[in-house]
Amino acid sequence: MKNIKIKNLNIQYQDLIVLQNFNASFGKGIHWIQGLNGSGKSSLLKSLCGIVPVTNNVVSIMGYDLNTQAIKAKSQLCFVADKPEVYPFMSGIGFLKLLARIKGVKLSDELFKFMDAINLTPYKDINFSEMSFGTRRKFTLCSVFIGNPQVILLDEPFNGLDKTTTELFRLWLLKARNEKCLLIVSHDTHMLDNIHKNIIVLDD
């Protein structure tokens, strides 16, 4: 079974057609989406997680229709946006706990280990308004460890990360690709060098 199935997806903003009759399916592994600025990469990810609305029977996640079976579909996925838009008064750990409660799970040991490894633990009680961009990115990236999502959508995941975090996250991607479907939008071509991946190029 394919983790993501897309059938005749259309994305349009006012008069601008971003994607037209887009068809694709993605299984386990790393799928790297490439394209020029404005070609619809981020919009594609947003349509796969319900931020950009789609009609019935266009997107299915793990066999669940994103529109009619939204709760089941969204329980299986995790979306990490390119810009971490989190309420300024929320603490790092507060943000992660909220996600865990929404998904009905507890924070895993794997998450805490990763937080330790990337030196995020000292910042867990600090509010997002007081964090640097990189720290905010790290916390939003940590959401991939919540609820064992089978589909992970990453929009420019390496932006703003330090060298250690980038390497550790790259190693995690290598490990996760065997059991999860990872859709990545990234302009950092060297980050995914020497990794077997499926490349999708979006044309104008």
């Binding site: 997680c49 319900g50 931020i51 939204a70 709760i71 089941k72 579909a73 969204k74 329980s75 996925l77 979306f79 946006a81 838009e85 989190v86 309420y87 996600l99 929404i102 998904k103």
Partner: peptide, 15 residues
């Protein structure tokens, strides 16, 4: 609710 509510759209919350 600001921009964070856009992100919440991606989470399994009942309409």
């Amino acid at each position: 609710g600001g921009k964070f509510t856009v992100f919440l759209q991606s989470l399994p919350i009942k309409e």
